[in-house]
């Protein structure tokens, strides 16, 4: 597995707190036995609503519909992003759309760990920094943003900002150990020893 340190590209700013995974990927698109093609349905209902308004002259189209952000690599979000359902379909679809990192105020735990398992770092930045970034990128979508996990810095144009990530998670990206399965399978005897000590496994 390859290590992840620098992520560079344009960004896609998405305003709002507590954006849940039902909104990121409505349940009707979970009716499938693979993840393929999911990216086409990201924010489908939110997009339809915002785009219809924009068409009638009210507000802007949804950022996920806006061609200016079509090739974005970095997603910028608010607080409690990815709350609600544990559906991995949400981060899977974001990843399949080409997004390779998320910067936000905070994340739901399940969304965060699902994203780690895909190699999609979810880093944190302060509210102020997020507001600045969002405004700057909304007015200049071609701004190149770079995230460095080794330096814990985010660069946007000439500005540099501090970002954070739990040290263990950061280490696992930097060393290429973010997919846990290999590690979990490494010591089968240790697993067996724990199982044998558990009364409910042995039948009391």
């Amino acid at each position: 597995m390859s290590n992840i340190d620098r992520i560079t590209g344009t960004a896609l700013p998405l305003r709002g707190d507590s954006i849940d995974t039902d909104r990121i990927m409505p349940a009707r698109f979970l009716r499938a036995i693979t993840f393929s093609g999911l990216e086409a349905h990201l924010f489908e209902d939110d997009r339809r609503e915002a785009d219809a308004r924009a068409a009638s002259g009210e507000g802007k189209p949804h950022p996920f519909s806006d061609p200016a952000f079509a090739n974005a690599t970095i997603l910028i979000v608010g607080a409690n992003f990815g709350c609600g359902s544990s559906r991995e379909h949400a981060p899977q679809a974001l990843f399949r759309r080409g997004l390779r990192a998320i910067v936000g105020d905070s994340y739901s735990e399940i969304f965060f760990s699902n994203s780690v398992a895909l190699g999609l770092p979810c880093v944190r930045a302060s509210r102020d920094v997020l507001e600045k970034l969002t405004t700057a990128i909304e007015s200049e979508p071609s701004t190149i943003v770079e995230i460095s996990l080794s330096e814990m810095q985010l660069t946007a144009g000439r500005e540099r900002h501090a970002i954070s990530l739990p040290p263990g998670t950061r280490e696992s990206f930097l060393t290429g150990h973010w997919d846990a399965t290999g590690l979990l399978l490494r010591e089968p005897e240790a697993i067996a020893r724990v199982a044998e000590r558990l009364p409910y496994v042995t039948g009391f």
Binding site: L30, I33, T34, F35, S86, R87, E88, P167, G168, T169, E171, S172, T175, H177, A180, L183, L184, E187, A190, I191, V194, A195, L198, Y200, V201
Partner: peptide, 27 residues
Amino acid sequence: HTVRVLPDGQTQLFIGLHLVHEVTSPQ
């Protein structure tokens, strides 16, 4: 349920019961 502490500081935890349903398991 702790099997060991992993290099990144997480715990490897034995899971006593795994429940599976049709939406999140086929993949």
